[in-house]
Design a binder for these strands. Structure first.
Lengths: 219, 219
DNA sequence: AAAAAACTACGTATAATTACGTAATTATTT
DNA sequence: AAATAATTACGTAATTATACGTAGTTTTTT
């Protein structure tokens, strides 16, 4: 059905590469066409052997697996990439996805899962080990539908209705003068509201205000 | 270590329930304390037996699995829930997550994956079969990490590397003085970069800068 | 009705930003 | 090698924001 999947392995540990190789040896339609011992090497080997799939360790000397992915993607190289990792670190998983990896496997994965991931990704799909799905879900529920405020404000950090109005206008890019006009109060008063607001939120400039407002979903 | 996990099964097919039961019978620490034959029944059985975990088919008469989850969550019932499904339908998966399911398993899952999911979820984690991770990734990359700029900048709106650094620092709440220190340039120079940046982006204050930077995903 | 909180507003002084002009030194591109 | 773009930096004047203090009205809570 499918042509042979040409694979490059990149991992600084010989025994890991050998382990994967022996695992893939018994598989039809899969051929290991290159190996790399660090990140920089991986880029060379991929450039040379133009594989269909790169299996790359996330932790490597010279360039990390993530940096390798970033580099390849920035060169518009669309080789399929599976990231290998010891740990289900949220940071690593998300960085890998962002960088453009097609899959993420834990080194503790079973042979079956490994092969399933390999075929899925080679066929153009994505495969992230079920063990790390909680991370994905966490991102999904936090980003798209943020139901609950991420943090609670300190008791005395409550902002008043008026301050909320000022905040809204500030965040939309209005200056004190414009705010004063919009709310039909004196410029001086607008300034005081702003001052009190920033004091309450313990921020020292507009940007921190903006960041805090987003972080605490103040609007 | 852990107490027994008390499980309720909800599926309109007897043989599916029996299959799962026989699978769980050999497991220590797992006890099936109730069974339901449709969605409405599931709610009753859960209310009665107050299990730790509900394994529920997505397709059922009376109330679908998703509706069952929604109902339970709306009643602030935080029983752990694993959704069972024949198909890796994007719609079903996302609806399940949104409704508040803790896991999603395909009926074709191996016994090992089934048990792993069960223990993971019972322990408070999430488990979504690796086969459906592509759906999750698709959502993630579409929603939070927008890879492509929402709009293209005007030709002469390109910002330089240095301006990007200044922008990053500005957005993090740094003032000109702090930026100057961070980049080891004179305060005056930092000011000029900032001035040029804002001129290019045609904004007249920090907030508009912040908004524009977000809108055009300048970082 | 009394007390507390919120909103309004003035003054004043220092600090920071804005909005130019000018120009030398590096990088980058052609 | 020449041209272009980027980075660096100084000066100056006008505007805006910051950081107080004080104090008279409303509004809300007790």
């Amino acid at each position: 059905m499918s042509a042979t999947i040409r694979v490059v392995l990149a991992d600084d540990h010989v025994f890991v590469r050998d382990g994967i190789k022996s695992l893939l040896e018994n598989e039809a339609n899969i051929e290991v066409v290159g190996e790399a011992i660090d990140g920089a090497d991986a880029l060379e080997v991929v450039a040379d052997s133009k594989p269909d799939l790169l299996i790359v360790d996330i932790r490597m000397p010279n360039l990390t697996g993530i940096e390798v992915v970033e580099k390849l993607r920035s060169e518009n190289n669309d080789v399929k990439i599976i990231m290998l990792s010891m740990h289900e670190s949220e940071e690593y998983v998300l960085k890998s996805i962002k960088a453009g990896a097609d899959g993420y496997l834990l080194k503790g994965s079973s042979k079956e899962e490994f092969l399933k991931a390999l075929h899925t990704v080679a066929a153009g799909g994505k495969y992230f080990s079920g063990d790390i799905s909680s991370i994905l879900i966490g991102q999904l529920t936090n980003s798209s539908a943020s139901l609950e405020p991420k943090q609670n404000l300190g008791e005395e950090m409550m902002i008043t209705k008026r301050e909320k109005e000022i905040l809204t206008l500030l965040l939309s890019g209005k200056g004190n003068k414009e705010i004063a006009e919009a709310l039909d109060i004196s410029k001086r008063t607008a300034e005081v509201h702003r001052f009190n607001l920033m004091k309450k939120l313990k921020v020292k400039n507009l940007m921190e205000l903006s960041n805090k407002a987003t972080e605490y979903s103040l609007l």
